[in-house]
């Protein structure tokens, strides 16, 4: 059976979701190609007259756009940004991102649940960025989310799977795709998230701050694919104590 990621009635083959922030527009096409990405995130900002280039001109056709609501401090602002994003004419997908805290940029789960409920009713495919809390994740499921996007570590930190055990609980208990978002800094961390059973991984800063962005995008693609294959294969067990030979011990030396 084909292994696909289902979101909002659509099926995706790629499980690496790409951010588009903090790097040159001219690198986006190469990033998408090397990442093998089918979904790319965007932000909505005031159009000010300093810069006129349209980011949409740089994104290859056929890539699904996932606007975020970054900048929103509560549910009402997130809903407003989501509606504007839809009016921009690029589909119904939205990544809810609501932050009250400006130091760690941690998401506000309670406001995120409220925004998810409103936007899901309006027909959006809602992908909420969240702090990995099982109760909040269940509320997001009930609110109509299409996935949950727990953070691995603070946004932009590249610190890896700081919330590993709590993400594992979501993977085990939540029936929606669990997409690990924020904080993943290295391909090995993306691979580990996929081995744990995450449905996908999303990265931005890990690529934007890498020495060679397209090459790092490729490294992440391979890591995500490897992790997915490992998860589907069923990881070998871990012995708490002792060892076990990987071949049958020959007895003849003792006979």
């Amino acid at each position: 059976m084909e292994d696909t990621l289902k979101l909002g009635g659509r099926e995706f083959h790629a499980r690496f979701i790409l951010g588009s922030g903090k790097y040159s527009l001219s690198l986006i096409e190469a990033a998408v190609q090397y990442a093998g990405a089918e979904i790319i995130t965007l932000a909505v900002r005031r159009a000010n007259t300093q810069e006129h280039e349209n980011i949409l001109d740089y994104i290859p056709k056929g890539v699904t756009l996932l606007p975020n609501t970054s900048g929103a401090r509560n549910a009402q602002e997130a809903v407003r940004i989501a509606r504007l994003a839809r009016e921009l004419g690029c589909g119904d997908f939205v990544k809810i991102e609501i932050m009250r805290d400006t130091k760690y940029l941690l998401p506000d789960n309670a406001e995120t649940i409220k925004a998810t409920e409103i936007l899901a009713k309006e027909g959006f495919v809602v992908m909420p960025y969240m702090y990995p809390d099982l109760n909040a994740a269940r509320d997001l499921v009930n609110a109509g989310a299409a996935s949950v996007m727990p953070l691995a570590a603070p946004i932009g930190s590249n610190k890896g799977l700081a919330t590993r055990d709590f993400i594992q609980i979501l993977i085990d208990e939540i029936d929606l795709p669990v997409i690990v978002d924020a904080g993943i800094g290295r391909p090995s961390q993306a691979c580990e998230a996929m081995e744990m059973g995450a449905a996908a991984v999303m990265c931005n800063t890990a690529l934007a701050t890498a020495g060679d962005l397209p090459a790092m995008a490729e490294a992440f693609r391979k890591a995500v694919e490897a992790g997915r294959s490992a998860y589907l294969s069923g990881l070998g067990r871990v012995l708490e104590r002792g060892g076990a030979p990987s071949d049958t011990l020959t007895g003849f030396l003792h006979d």
């Binding site: 903090k22 790097y23 527009l25 986006i28 909505v44 900002r45 005031r46 980011i55």
Partner: peptide, 8 residues
């Protein structure tokens, strides 16, 4: 008046 820009 808003538009899309790069974001994560």
């Amino acid at each position: 008046i808003v538009r899309f820009v790069g974001g994560g």
